[in-house]
Design a protein around this nucleic acid. Structure first.
Length: 499
RNA sequence: UCCGGCGUAGCGCAGUGGUAGCGCAGGUGACUGUUAAUCACUUGGUCGUAGGUUCGAAUCCUACCGCCGGAGCCA
């Protein structure tokens, strides 16, 4: 018999005596009553300890926050309890705990929280994100497993660069120099020629010195690769894949998404068909007068919003100044802080916008789509958009040029809505040996380390392709997070590799 | 690498040249239904570091360090 109950299952045990194991995450006292909040990973339960059980009362009164505890008692439905059910405690035992738990219920700064990431993970918000991440990872694997894909693990130590060499982490490997993987793709192509439909799912590393809310130096990518697949097949697969991820999150993690304040209606709109445009169409859209007009109007509207917010801030500050009651001052301080934060963001955004608008209007065919262009594009649609056929000079050597227009390659990017940017990048691969060699020569690449890769075009080459989806950007989008650092348990960012 | 912002108690912040402050957390006490409980009292400071200006610097200047955001680059 298992004598312990999980908080999630308490309603089924109402009226019975059960034992809970968990951590004390909050406490309110009221004379001869203690309300202890206990979490166990499945939920949070309010536990009531009364003075008429003096032993339990004495322990509950002194137990430091975040002590590990074992409680025996009777769960009872009670509408006064958060969650509708509470434990009436008979025994309260502390396994271990001490004073000084660093994270309080009030807000903390980013740096402090990042330094305490190992403890920050315990918070309701972080556990909600971790569960969504888990659901997306599981759904991604299920998606490919159900479609006959075989999981093939690709190496982390790799001899050379698949893409830009400036972004690799070098590692000393018994006197040789190797690099941490930034994609498993080349190896996956080899596996696709063996198994037909394959995917890999692992960490990837980029040494770019990007210090933004969208970048990690270590992130997880799921990459399918399919023999005999051509660009339209890849678009269909990517569309179905993204839809299944969103559906899984909505079905299995609705509560967590709500706790995170996610606008669920925006996610419900994610359904096929996704708009599909070519790079050339995207470039025309960016340069068009209509787009320019719209952006200018939006900018003016947001400027008005800024002035408005500044007026409101001044008003609040004046009220704060003349306010005499401490608790009202406190309330006003909170409002002022929130407004200041909002203003700071809006100001940065507005400061960048004229440059964005200008760069959109002056966008030249052949330029790569940067973050700003992506944002402007995705604002025109209410669901992810698929952009295909980029100029070949923007893209990697292994992408296959379009037979009907050799200036462009048969690639696809999927851009998430609401400003979250690229979540999928992929392409049909060059399957012709001579064309591939010519392209590598053009790029000034040494073919020697790639001989094994070229073998794939020598012995039974077929049209094939695949794509990669960045898990963290997907988690950020689906959870509606401002910053990618919360999407992974222990983020690795430029300038931070601890804890 | 460049641009901007920030650095004041354990945490979050106010303080624009004249005695170092507020809230939370911690401590003591009151309270039998709290929801970030409330109330009273209370502990806690090398104002990032170094130099400079000044009768006097948290406040002004210079350099450096750290953090945040953005650009470039990228998923």
């Amino acid at each position: 018999m298992n004598p312990y109950a999980h908080i999630r299952d308490l309603p089924a045990h109402a009226g019975e005596t059960v034992e809970l194991r968990g951590w004390l995450c909050g406490r309110r006292t009221s004379g001869k009553l203690i309300f202890a909040l206990v979490r166990d990973g499945t939920g949070v339960c309010q536990c009531v300890v009364e003075a008429k059980t003096p032993d339990a009362f004495a322990v509950a009164e002194r137990a430091p926050l975040e002590s590990s505890v074992i409680l025996r008692g009777v769960p009872r439905a009670d509408e006064r309890a958060p969650g509708g059910i509470e434990m009436h405690v008979a025994d309260f035992t502390v396994i271990q705990g001490r004073e000084g738990y660093p994270i309080a219920r009030k807000e903390h700064g980013v740096d402090f929280l990042m330094n305490h990431r190992h403890l920050w993970l315990r918070s309701l918000r972080q556990t909600a994100i971790l569960r969504v991440r888990h659901t997306l990872v599981a759904a991604a694997r299920r998606f490919f497993d159900e479609r006959g894909f075989t999981l093939v693990d690709t190496p982390i130590f790799q001899p050379g660069a698949a893409e830009g060499a400036g972004s690799l982490f070098p590692v000393e490997y018994f006197g040789e120099r190797v690099y941490l993987a930034q994609t498993g793709q080349l190896y996956l192509e080899a596996a696709a020629m063996a198994l037909g439909r394959v995917y890999c799912f692992g960490p990837t590393f980029r040494a770019e010195k990007s210090k933004t809310r969208r970048h990690l130096t270590e992130f997880w990518m799921v990459e399918p690769e399919i023999a005999f697949a051509e660009l339209p097949d890849l678009m269909d697969l990517a569309e179905a894949f993204v839809c299944q991820l969103v559906e899984a999150a909505l079905r299995e993690r609705r509560d967590d998404l709500q706790r995170l304040g996610r606008d669920l209606a925006a996610l419900e709109r994610v359904a096929p068909p996704f708009p599909r445009i070519t790079y050339t169409e995207a470039a025309e859209l960016l340069r068009s007068d209509a787009t320019h007009q719209r952006l200018v109007v939006e900018l003016e509207a947001d400027r008005a919003r800024l002035t408005d917010s500044m007026r409101r801030l001044a008003e609040l500050e004046a009220r704060r100044h003349s306010e005499t009651k401490a608790w009202r001052q406190d309330k006003l301080d909170d409002e002022i802080a929130a407004l200041r934060e909002e203003l700071r963001e809006l100001e940065t955004d507005l400061a960048n916008r004229p440059a964005h608008i200008e760069s959109a209007r002056r966008f030249q065919w052949g330029d790569d789509l940067g973050g700003d262009e992506e944002t402007i594009l995705t604002r025109q649609f209410d669901r992810p958009v698929i952009v295909t056929r980029y100029p070949r000079q923007c893209k990697a050597f292994y992408m296959k040029p379009a037979p009907d227009d050799p200036r462009v390659v048969l690639n696809l990017d999927v851009l998430a809505p609401e400003g979250y940017g690229e979540i999928i990048g992929g392409s049909q691969r060059e399957d012709d040996l001579d064309a591939l060699c010519a392209r590598m020569k053009e790029e000034g690449m040494d073919p020697e380390p790639y001989e094994w890769y070229l073998d794939l075009r020598r012995y039974g080459s077929v049209p094939h392709g695949g794509f990669g989806l960045g898990i963290e950007r997907t988690v950020a989008w689906i959870c509606g997070l401002r910053h990618i650092r919360e999407t992974i348990p222990f983020p690795r960012l430029i300038g931070r590799a601890t804890p």
